[in-house]
Computed example of a mutant assay.
Amino acid sequence: MIETDMEELAELESRQIQILHRIAQLELSILPLSNNSQRQELSTSTTEARLSAVLVHGGVSDFSFKRAPSDYYDRSLEARRDILGAASIHHLCKSIVLVNTQAASDITDCSDRQNSKYYVVVVQYTARFSAESVKNFLYTINNGKIPKKRFNLRLAPEEISHKLTGFEHNGVTCVGMKTDIPVILDEAIAKLHPDFFWLGGGEIDLKLGIRTSEFINFTKPFIVNCSGS
C-alpha cells in the first residue's frame, strides 16, 4: 500500500513539473522580444522544469537547481563552492563533450557505447583530465579488437557540442541531451564524501546538484580513473 502511494506521488510530481514546463514555454512564446531579461529568466525556468521532469521520470529524487550570478566563472573555486553550498571545491564538476577523431569511417554516432564517436566526460574542476586514460579504457573494454590508434579523444568543437547536447558552453549537462551520448564519470567523483556533487544545469547560470548514486543509476556511466590532481 505504501509503495503504491509513493508511486502515485511520484507520478503526480512528474505531471506537475510537466505542467510547469508547458506554462513556462507558453509565457516565453508570448513575451515581447524587447524584454530580454524576462525572456532569459523564463528560458532558465523552462530548462529547469524540463530537466526536473527528465530526472523525476528517471527515478532521481535527490537533486537541486541553483542560479549562479553572471560573474560566476570569474570567481574562485572557493567562492563558487559557497554560492552553491557545495561540500568542497572538489564537489564542483563539469561535463565536456569529446570526439574520437581517429574513429573508423563507419563510426559516426553514439549507437555503440563501447566504440562511440562521442563521449561526455564528467570531471572535477580541481582535477586534470587525462584523455590517455580514456583511450586505454576504451581499448580495454573492446578487448583489444580495435587498435589503440583508433582512439584519439579530443574536446569537441563548441558548435558540435551544442548540436549534440542542445546546451551552450558552461551549461552542458548529462541530463536531457538531444543525443544519447555515452557518459564517462571520473572515478574520483564516485568516491566523494558526501556523495552529492554539482555540474552544469543546462544554462550558463544554472547549476545542478545531484546525489552521486542517483546520477550513476540515471546515466549508467562508465566509471573511469581519468584524472589527476
Rank of each mutant, 00 (worst) to 15 (best):
D71V: 13
S95A: 15
Y118W: 08
Y118N: 04
D82E: 15
P194E: 14
V99R: 05
R150G: 00
S88A: 03
H57C: 00
M177H: 01
Y139A: 07
G58C: 01
L9K: 13
H21W: 12
K94A: 07
K66W: 05
S43L: 01
E13I: 00
S133N: 04
N36I: 15
T140F: 13
N225P: 01
K145L: 05
E11N: 07
S37Y: 04
V97C: 12
E3R: 13
M177I: 01
V56F: 09
S37I: 09
D71K: 08
I23M: 06
A156N: 06
N35Q: 11
F137S: 06
Q124I: 00
R128N: 06
G209Y: 06
V121D: 02
S52P: 10
A127D: 06
T126W: 07
T4Y: 06
K117D: 13
E11R: 08
A87G: 02
N115W: 02
I83H: 13
Q114P: 01
F129R: 07
I30D: 00
L98C: 14
A127I: 01
V121W: 06
T4M: 06
N142M: 08
D106S: 11
S161T: 15
S227Q: 05
Y119M: 14
R50F: 15
K117G: 12
E187H: 10
I160F: 03
L164K: 06
R22D: 15
S43G: 14
I89C: 10
R50M: 15
Q25K: 10
I2L: 14
A68P: 00
S229N: 02
T108Y: 01
G85R: 09
Y139M: 05
A49K: 00
I107D: 08
M1I: 04
Q40P: 05
K163M: 07
I146G: 00
Q40K: 15
C226W: 00
L77V: 08
I17V: 09
Y125A: 04
Q25L: 12
K135C: 10
D71R: 08
H21Y: 09
G58Q: 10
A104W: 04
F196A: 05
L164T: 05
E27C: 13
E41G: 01
F63Q: 01
R81K: 14
S229T: 02
E158W: 02
M177K: 02
C110K: 08
V60G: 00
S227F: 04
R211I: 01
D195N: 12
